[in-house]
């Protein structure tokens, strides 16, 4: 157990030399087509939101952002990608759920948690803001009002 803090410290120092970008991972869209995550590096500003149909706070957050999304797009050009981590138990619910909530987001399916694992996400909801593929903000959990903090970050990162 004593080795663990030492190990973490080493890795912290080691990671300080890295700017984070995106892994080479392909996920399925709702239309069952492949979508390469690496391609998001070309986008000026992207929000990736990890969610699931059984996650109440995720739904609060994405419903809330829906109201603001068109304003955000006009002002910052941001694109939102909602990555569902529903596995086979609940995956069939994703499509009707998204339609009924009329979410305007691009939906990707991370059925066996490939992207979730690559980005080391432990709790959902989790929001990641990417500027040309580099992580500029990451936040786990949703507290009402969090969308204002997200908007501030977006404004800071427009060119």
């Amino acid at each position: 157990m004593r080795q663990l803090p030492a190990l973490i410290f080493t890795l912290l120092l080691f990671s300080a030399t890295y700017a984070q970008s995106l892994p080479y991972i392909s996920l399925k869209t709702l239309e069952n087509k492949g979508f390469q995550i690496k391609l998001l590096e070309k986008e000026p500003l992207v929000i990736i939101s990890f969610w699931a149909t059984w996650c109440s706070n995720c739904i609060y957050e994405l419903d809330e952002i829906k109201e603001l999304y068109s304003d955000w797009q006009k002002q910052t050009g941001v694109k939102i990608i909602a990555v569902s981590i529903d596995d086979y138990r609940t995956i069939s619910r994703v499509k009707p759920f998204v339609k009924s909530h009329q979410w305007p987001y691009k939906i990707l399916l991370d059925t066996n948690q490939k992207l979730k694992r690559a980005l080391n996400i432990s709790n959902i909801p989790e929001i990641i803001i990417l500027k040309k593929g580099k992580i500029v903000y990451q936040h786990s959990g949703y507290t009402p009002g969090n969308e204002d903090a997200i908007f501030d970050i977006l404004i800071q990162n427009i060119q």
Partner: peptide
């Protein structure tokens, strides 16, 4: 693992490192 990633780390644009602790 560390040697390879340190060497490759020089070319940072193409590399990605993500560490998670829970």
């Amino acid at each position: 693992f560390f040697i390879c990633s340190s060497i490759l780390g020089i070319a940072q644009d193409k590399s990605f490192l993500n560490i998670g602790f829970e």
